[in-house]
Design a protein around this nucleic acid. Structure first.
Lengths: 227, 227
DNA sequence: AGAGTTTTATAAGAATTAATTAAAGAATAC
DNA sequence: GTATTCTTTAATTAATTCTTATAAAACTCT
């Protein structure tokens, strides 16, 4: 989970970063709104924590700009305790509004609540579609479209391909692949089950093991699919 | 929009009702948790405002019970200002936590923010009529019209078809289907109840299991109805 | 180059999972 | 209270998918 933190008060931003990192969130920290706007399309933000009072572009403006394109949750954390500010903040598209000084644990709890609402309760996530290099794989419809042709995959084939696509560009260790697909540890007796499935996948993708275009073997490690 | 308000302090509940009614929300007001549980399946709640400290079933318990079946936003409004209570409340499934005394306008703003998140940003449409590909299914009247012919469905058949239609295009896992129709977990001994109902549905839709036009089997996963 | 290791290919049997029946059990309506 | 309809269970059959075993090929290292 990637969380955007924007606050011109460095100490506060740093503090929030510590709390969030501690909970294993990945934090993109900015002391200036302007830089956020340059980068935001590149980052895949899941939630934003914004300060209100900042130079040049204030939190409310930033929130409005973000909302033109994105629907991830936005939480204001600010020293402005006036009710009218809370109401404005929530009205322009924020999901929550916390006033400083705040309890770290409360902030974390609110972050978690928002992420739960956004990710778990909300079924419309495009996290379930991966699209690259003529490959479109959709975990909702269980469809695999390869070079504009729909291809039927079995459950196991789909799981393996899904796992490789999620980690596209990176090697997936045979063991990790096994864990991901079967959800258990293997490596008792020799197991070439995965190889058989990989072969089937390559077959369906008109790929060869000699010079594979898609699923490459990384000797002694596992498999990877190029980005 | 239907809002559930539960508070054993009548004055507070009445006050909240006034604010909400003023904003043209429809309010279901309860002074007792028990009655809520009796009625909740009949009401079509979009958001709930719960007090924490109540006799017999407290707000936290009520929240947990609601969350077993529903994902609409829940806001706690309570005199308990302890941080640990806020954190617990948010952890068990609430979306926001406001402490008494609260500003009416802030409450309204938070209600609106939650509803916006739930309704607007969340694309999952919960209309009661779904119409596509010669299928018209109406969850209010429980009517099913297939290629201009009304077709009688039993309660279970309707629930299954409704669930598939709501997720049309996407695979519905057998387990999820079970959860949705029977509202409980199964997976004890194997259970082909669903298969029998699916067969009946296909029969009524003049469909076959070999080359189904409508309800397709996704091996090892579940069923889906094409968009 | 050769020994040892790891991956690939192939095919067949094993194991899963789904569909079909028929009938018993439960719920509902009359 | 009985009849009817609906739901579930159970047993069987059918279809699909997974695993195993084997042999062959490719790679690594000395």
């Amino acid at each position: 989970m990637n969380i955007l933190v924007v606050d011109d008060e460095k100490e506060i931003a740093d503090l929030i970063e510590i709390y969030l990192t501690n909970e294993n969130y990945h934090v993109y920290k900015y002391y200036d709104s302007k830089n956020v706007l340059n980068d935001i399309d590149k980052l895949k933000i899941d939630l934003a924590i914004l300060d209100v009072m900042m130079p040049t572009i204030d939190g409310f403006q930033l929130c409005s700009i973000i909302r033109e394109k994105y629907t991830f949750p936005i939480i204001f954390v600010t020293a402005k305790v006036e009710d009218i500010d809370k109401i404005s903040g929530l009205s322009i598209g924020a999901d929550d509004y916390i006033t400083k000084p705040f309890q770290p644990l409360e902030l974390i709890a609110r972050v978690k609540a928002q992420l739960r609402r956004y990710k778990t309760y909300n079924k419309t996530n495009d996290d379930n579609i991966i699209d690259f290099r003529g490959i479109t794989i959709n975990n909702d419809t269980h469809e695999f479209i390869f070079e504009d042709e729909p291809i039927e995959l079995t459950k196991t084939e789909f799981s393996i391909l899904w796992c490789l696509c999620q980690n596209r560009g990176n090697v997936v260790k045979t063991e990790d692949l096994f864990m991901n697909v079967w959800g258990e540890k293997y490596f008792e007796n020799d197991n070439n089950t995965i190889m058989v499935h990989i072969r089937h996948l390559r077959e369906k993708m008109h790929d060869t093991s000699k010079i594979p275009k898609y699923i490459k073997t990384v000797w002694g490690v596992g498999y990877k699919i190029e980005k």
